[in-house]
Design a protein around this nucleic acid. Structure first.
Lengths: 353, 353
DNA sequence: ATGAAAGCGCTAACAG
DNA sequence: CTGTTAGCGCTTTCAT
């Protein structure tokens, strides 16, 4: 299928990087017959400049193709109009929703988002934070509350507003918005119990938050006396993070083999739950009659599945919007939140369980 | 579920934004008993500094918690170690793979990626490009080859290396890597024909590239004499972009109602194909016996579906890696590609069609 | 191997 | 409303 390009680049100029022909504010000023600072004002405080001059300057900008150097401006004003966010991975739609919320809200306010992926490891997060702080963003959004000491110190010393997301903590670096993962686990376990399920199993990712949900589930199970006949606890299959359709499918196949009496599955993501649904369908196991399946996230596809997926709704988009808002409030000098804010969750009952 | 924070922030300092207590290179230099330029050299060209001094400087950096200001460095050196990319949306896993490829490759080389989402509209892309060029990145990655004139001019004038992805063109802005969407459409149509399918339909997104695939498909259909009894062409259901499980499911339900004799569906994404599979299962329509289903992208879940999804494999990750490599080559002064490079595609035959 | 001087492009602070 | 002066923090260039 490979095909060679029919023509070469139509671009005639020899492209040395960062061609030093770059137009500066002074060039524009000269052409408009004003001083550079006036050009700056036209761009940043147009109301402080007379309409006539404003127009002349805009004309000059158009003619020269001037694009302000935000590095220079940022250096001088210590305002970069840049917000940085670190997520474990954007391959997980759950984090993606937060990113979308952030993007949307920040974009409205004229800020840009710079995204980093930590891949769930602390060393990588540390490196990212260092690189990010070096660019002096106006704010930073973090995922989770587990950060190295060095990272916390660095962030606090930088004086940059920080929002931690996806979790709650009595000791945030600065601000925080999230929910209790233990409570999610407990709530789903109680939900199963209410619906008459007595032998649940867990399919979970191996990251900190997923494991705390599992823990909350187990504790509730113990309290409610749910257990497999041969087992003191709830069978748990821990998978790589992030969990996928594939891992969910395999995980369920394995659990079903070992515990053929299981009657409910709580998955740590909707993707894994889709995997369970797929495997159940392939094996002819009736959902929800024989096995109840509950996911986590309420991703867009959850409602469209067959059977439609019962899941724990986490409003990632709202979390992203909120996080952005906290940052924007702080930057605008408005009173911002203190401590951690609980965004909550809810169980969306559909057909699968 | 809401819960108030039990404590307030543990952070004792009053956080005025960008606390001007920021440690600079001079502070480090003073503490280490050297001049600022020596600190700079320890950071950027350690081999040009004697080991003793190097160690002293590192010590001072550790003690002060100094984080170099990349804005200042970038301003002076015109090297930002920043690459910007614009994709229509990161909600589409296909683009996400490109982003992952870029991230991976750039990260290795010590570059950071700044991501923008154009939402498939040109005006939004123009605004993004403007904001991006303002930050003077060392390179820019674009999705597609359809850009406004203003955008092309701006980019060319900026002298920043540019790679366009996902498509081929004889007149790239600078460099390009992609594949022929027309050929994808034609190839799938021929594939259906070889397998004895005679009444195919299309479920497609409304973006430029998807429509060109549809066009390639239709032309091939005409050549091969494929048509519905009552129809001159191939029935096409155009959906919002990006297509989702939900839209795919509805689209298929609609087509099935109107053309009950259809025997093959080509979807413009694997998500839409999953929607078709879901609807077929819900209605008890046998796949592939009654209807063949082919997706696009070969996303990770495609192979794990039941039935496993036949799809057009586009190696987005490789495309991202390549794009990054072209940029890095150019930045390192190595001879870089000229014109557009075809990354090709292939049809992965599985169970669904 | 190390340092001094100069200035990247812009905007804060202060005039006028 | 407009301009002058100074300098953000760093690295280039040229000395030593």
């Amino acid at each position: 299928m490979a095909q060679q390009p029919p023509h070469r680049s139509a671009n005639p100029t020899r492209r040395a990087h960062a061609a030093r022909a770059s137009v500066t504010m002074s060039d524009v000023a000269r052409l408009a017959g004003v001083s550079p600072i006036t050009v700056s004002r036209v761009l940043n405080h147009p109301e402080r400049v007379s309409p006539g001059v404003r127009e002349r300057v805009h004309g000059a900008i158009g003619k020269t193709g001037y694009v302000p150097n935000l590095l220079a401006g940022g250096l001088r004003s210590s305002k970069s109009r840049l917000i940085a966010a670190i997520v474990p991975t954007i391959e997980s739609p759950a984090f993606l929703q937060v990113v979308q919320g952030l993007t949307h809200k920040l974009d409205e306010a004229g800020y840009q988002l710079m995204l980093g992926q930590s891949g769930y490891t602390q060393s990588r997060e540390d490196a990212l934070v260092q690189a990010i702080v070096g660019r002096r963003p106006d704010g930073i959004v973090l995922t989770g509350i587990l950060h190295s000491d060095a990272c916390r110190k660095l962030l606090q010393a930088s004086g940059i507003p920080v929002v931690e997301t996806w979790d709650l903590t009595p000791t945030p670096i600065d601000m925080a918005i999230g929910f209790s993962h233990e409570k999610v686990g407990a709530a789903v376990c109680e939900y199963f119990h209410r619906n008459g399920r007595r032998r649940p199993v867990l399919i979970t990712g191996g990251d900190d938050r997923a494991l705390r949900r599992a823990q909350g589930f187990m504790e509730a199970a113990q309290r409610l006396g749910l257990r497999h006949d041969a087992l003191a606890g709830v069978p748990l299959r821990q998978l790589e993070t992030p969990t996928s359709l594939q891992t969910g499918r395999e995980g369920f196949a394995e659990l079903w083999r070992r515990y053929p009496d299981l009657d409910a599955v709580f998955c740590s993501s909707d993707q894994a739950a889709l995997g369970v649904l797929t495997e159940a369908q392939a094996q002819g196991i009736a959902v929800p009659e024989r096995v109840a399946v509950v996911g986590l996230g309420d991703l867009p596809f959850a409602a469209s599945l067959h059977p439609a997926l019962t899941t724990v709704r986490i409003d990632g988009y709202a979390m992203g919007c909120q996080a952005a808002q906290y940052l924007l409030d702080r930057l605008a000098g408005r009173p911002a939140v203190a401590g951690a804010v609980d965004i909550g969750f809810s169980i969306i009952q559909r057909q699968s369980g």
